[in-house]
Amino acid sequence: MREPRTAAVLLAVSLLGMACASARSTAPEVPSPLVYKSEAVGAPQPEALLVALHFSGSSPAFWDEHVQSLGIPVRTLLPQGPRPRRDGFTWFQADHEAKTGEGKTEDVERMATRIAELIREVRAAHPEIRRVVVTGFSYGGDLAWMLALRHPELVDAAVPMGTRLLGDPARELPASLRVRVLQGEQDAIIPVQRTRERVAELKGRGVPIDVRTFPDLGHDVSPALLEDWRAFVRQSLQGPVD
């Protein structure tokens, strides 16, 4: 008479084990912390933080010479995309470009949230920081814009370059925030007319944003674009932008 009971217990244990295994297999993946470097340039304790986000297939080292060219004291925060791509790294999974606009926006929002945590971490370690500027190119530009859009309490100014300007404001952005979009007029990935229309739409909704475009430039940077980038970033790091 004990055999049926024993079998029932074994079956229950087996089913419980299968349920636990299933729960483990469907549990959401917890992303590992992002790799980044942060260092003081030009002074031991700069009061400004520049968060610079590389393009897909690049690395944080892309920004080194551009940071040096600013010629002002600044602390850098240079995160690295979590996934290898070509000779560098990228920010999103391989299916990112195949997604709808809504899906792309969700990807960028999630990654921007992870970068926002890094900004908080660096600011907690360096309470002397008074101003934060975020910048990036291509996917990095998408992220710089999303940080300004979703985490304006952390950002004083943003310079997204070659960006799709995904997402819409969920709340009123502070008047002190400034966003300058930089883009080539021959960009084959992001049509410049679409960017102009998008910026005009956002400005009409009260977003403090403008755009500068550059003739004969594609989805890339140029000396003229970088000159504009330096002027805006330098002024933004040193004080309010007029």
Results as ranks from 00 to 15, higher is better:
4 P>V: 13
5 R>G: 02
8 A>D: 13
9 V>W: 05
10 L>W: 01
12 A>N: 00
14 S>E: 01
16 L>C: 13
22 S>I: 09
25 S>V: 05
29 E>H: 10
30 V>H: 11
30 V>W: 13
30 V>P: 02
31 P>I: 12
31 P>K: 07
35 V>H: 09
36 Y>A: 05
39 E>Y: 07
43 A>V: 12
44 P>L: 11
46 P>T: 08
55 F>K: 03
56 S>N: 09
59 S>K: 14
61 A>I: 08
63 W>N: 04
65 E>V: 10
67 V>W: 01
71 G>S: 07
74 V>R: 01
76 T>R: 03
77 L>Q: 04
79 P>L: 04
80 Q>L: 08
92 F>A: 05
95 D>E: 15
96 H>A: 11
97 E>R: 01
98 A>C: 00
100 T>W: 04
105 T>N: 13
108 V>R: 00
109 E>V: 14
110 R>D: 14
116 A>D: 09
116 A>Q: 04
117 E>M: 12
117 E>N: 06
118 L>G: 08
119 I>S: 03
126 H>E: 06
130 R>F: 01
130 R>C: 03
132 V>Y: 02
132 V>D: 03
134 V>Q: 01
139 Y>F: 06
140 G>D: 11
142 D>T: 01
148 A>K: 03
153 E>I: 05
153 E>K: 04
156 D>W: 09
156 D>H: 15
157 A>T: 08
158 A>R: 03
160 P>Q: 02
163 T>E: 13
163 T>A: 15
164 R>A: 14
164 R>T: 11
164 R>M: 10
170 A>P: 00
176 S>Q: 14
180 R>Y: 07
181 V>Y: 08
181 V>D: 10
183 Q>H: 11
187 D>V: 09
193 Q>I: 09
194 R>G: 10
195 T>R: 00
197 E>T: 14
198 R>A: 07
198 R>C: 09
204 G>H: 12
206 G>S: 13
209 I>L: 10
224 A>W: 05
229 W>K: 00
230 R>G: 01
234 R>Q: 09
236 S>L: 10
237 L>A: 05
241 V>C: 11
